[in-house]
Amino acid sequence: MSRIRAAFHDPDGTRYGIPTFWWKGAPAGYAARRQLRVAGLRPGGQPVAAQILWRGVGGNRVAYLYRVELALPKRTATPAQMRAITAALTARRTCRVCGVVRPYCIPRSLGECVDCAYPMEEAA
């Protein structure tokens, strides 16, 4: 075991307070938030079970791990929530001036679609 790995190897949590492993050194059964998300799971309110420490730019970096068997399935949006999201995204693409639904989100800095904001450039 290299010195860097040995510095971050604390499986019983005596040095860092919780079980600590080196980069790519965590045993099976632990996963980070992104890994849980890919698997269709979420932490579900469980506390951090372990951590991974590694040396990165600017100092030591940390990634918190959760127990996979305690993770819950991801929540899905209800049909009403999906309708609300669709309506909000459509509102972001609708020009206030001409009322046309554009294929892009209207820039907040302009407050209107590009065609309404720069009408002379379209004629050229």
Rank of each mutant, 00 (worst) to 15 (best):
residue 1 M to Y: 12
residue 1 M to D: 12
residue 2 S to I: 06
residue 2 S to T: 12
residue 4 I to K: 14
residue 5 R to T: 11
residue 5 R to E: 12
residue 8 F to A: 01
residue 9 H to W: 14
residue 9 H to N: 12
residue 13 G to A: 09
residue 13 G to V: 02
residue 15 R to T: 07
residue 15 R to Y: 07
residue 16 Y to M: 12
residue 17 G to L: 08
residue 18 I to Q: 15
residue 20 T to V: 06
residue 21 F to Q: 07
residue 21 F to P: 08
residue 22 W to F: 15
residue 25 G to M: 12
residue 25 G to I: 10
residue 25 G to C: 11
residue 25 G to W: 09
residue 26 A to M: 07
residue 26 A to W: 01
residue 27 P to G: 00
residue 27 P to W: 09
residue 29 G to Y: 02
residue 29 G to I: 04
residue 30 Y to S: 07
residue 32 A to K: 10
residue 33 R to H: 12
residue 36 L to F: 02
residue 37 R to T: 09
residue 37 R to G: 03
residue 37 R to S: 14
residue 39 A to R: 14
residue 40 G to C: 08
residue 41 L to A: 02
residue 42 R to S: 15
residue 43 P to F: 08
residue 44 G to W: 10
residue 44 G to Q: 07
residue 47 P to K: 00
residue 47 P to I: 03
residue 48 V to L: 08
residue 49 A to C: 01
residue 50 A to P: 05
residue 50 A to L: 01
residue 50 A to M: 04
residue 52 I to R: 09
residue 54 W to I: 03
residue 57 V to F: 14
residue 58 G to R: 06
residue 58 G to K: 05
residue 59 G to E: 02
residue 59 G to F: 04
residue 59 G to D: 03
residue 59 G to L: 09
residue 62 V to T: 13
residue 62 V to Y: 07
residue 62 V to M: 06
residue 66 Y to N: 09
residue 66 Y to M: 06
residue 66 Y to S: 14
residue 67 R to V: 10
residue 68 V to P: 00
residue 72 L to R: 13
residue 76 T to V: 14
residue 76 T to N: 11
residue 78 T to R: 05
residue 79 P to I: 02
residue 79 P to A: 12
residue 80 A to D: 13
residue 80 A to S: 05
residue 82 M to D: 04
residue 83 R to V: 04
residue 83 R to T: 10
residue 83 R to Y: 00
residue 84 A to R: 08
residue 85 I to T: 14
residue 86 T to S: 15
residue 86 T to R: 15
residue 87 A to V: 03
residue 90 T to H: 10
residue 91 A to F: 02
residue 92 R to N: 05
residue 92 R to T: 05
residue 94 T to E: 00
residue 94 T to R: 02
residue 94 T to C: 00
residue 95 C to F: 03
residue 96 R to G: 14
residue 96 R to P: 06
residue 98 C to M: 01
residue 101 V to E: 09
residue 101 V to H: 04
residue 102 R to P: 04
residue 102 R to K: 15
residue 102 R to W: 03
residue 103 P to T: 04
residue 103 P to F: 03
residue 105 C to N: 15
residue 105 C to V: 15
residue 106 I to Q: 04
residue 106 I to H: 04
residue 106 I to L: 06
residue 109 S to T: 12
residue 111 G to R: 01
residue 111 G to F: 01
residue 112 E to P: 00
residue 112 E to Y: 01
residue 114 V to K: 10
residue 114 V to S: 08
residue 114 V to C: 00
residue 115 D to C: 05
residue 117 A to N: 01
residue 119 P to K: 00
residue 121 E to W: 08
